[in-house]
Amino acid sequence: MHTLAIDTSNQALGVAILKDKELVGEIITNIAKNHSVRLMPAIEYLMENVNLSVNQLDKIVVSKGPGSYTGVRIGLTTAKTLAWSLNIPIVGVSSLEVLAYRANFSNSFICPFFDARRGLVYTGLYESREGNIDLVEKDQNTLFADWLDKLATFNQKIIFISPDIEKNAEIIRERLGDNAIIPEMTYHTPRPCDIAIAAAGKDPEDTHTITPNYLRLAEAEANWLKQQKDN
């Protein structure tokens, strides 16, 4: 049973191949370059290097957001089109959950987040317990300051994981004090093999209807809805 994992939801580009539960190969780059240009060549390269032909794939797993709208769509479009044309199941996993796996086995609360600009973040609260990652507070698009105040009320150690950790470390320490744990930089890049672990316990989604987890309406739609309400 071969699983192909894809993540282009944020800056990192990740592709992994697993045979059953074993990691066979993985590519991660963490540079600001075009996912659309690089994703398919990365998949092709990795498949070739592990001597796998496309017909040997049994399952596709993908990070379905939140993150960059365009990035999420590139990964999901590639994943769902592969799944449809190969007639194999697809499982989508929250990009935040995938990130939380970087602190698995910590037996601690984990707060993964992505900067969503203007003081906002995409975030959720997860907990690592005996090697499992459980959801505590659902993924949301929220003001980081408010979110941190809420986390402070837990009065527990919380591990913060984010590709945007550097520019947010100060406010985290300010609000959480010693309860904030911020690991070394290399822990803040998601690993695509974690998508497969997270997906193992989830049911496949309908290939046609699986859609990105934007966590936010398109701006035009939000404005339009507001106008409808005001009228």
């Binding site: 659309s36 398919m40 092709e44 769509r73 590139i74 479009t77 590639t78 089109t81 592969l82 044309s85």
Partner: peptide
């Protein structure tokens, strides 16, 4: 981008 990435996935898969 949606069409281009779907096309690439198809060309690769088939």
């Amino acid at each position: 981008l949606i069409g281009v990435n779907a096309a690439k996935a198809l060309a690769f898969a088939k």
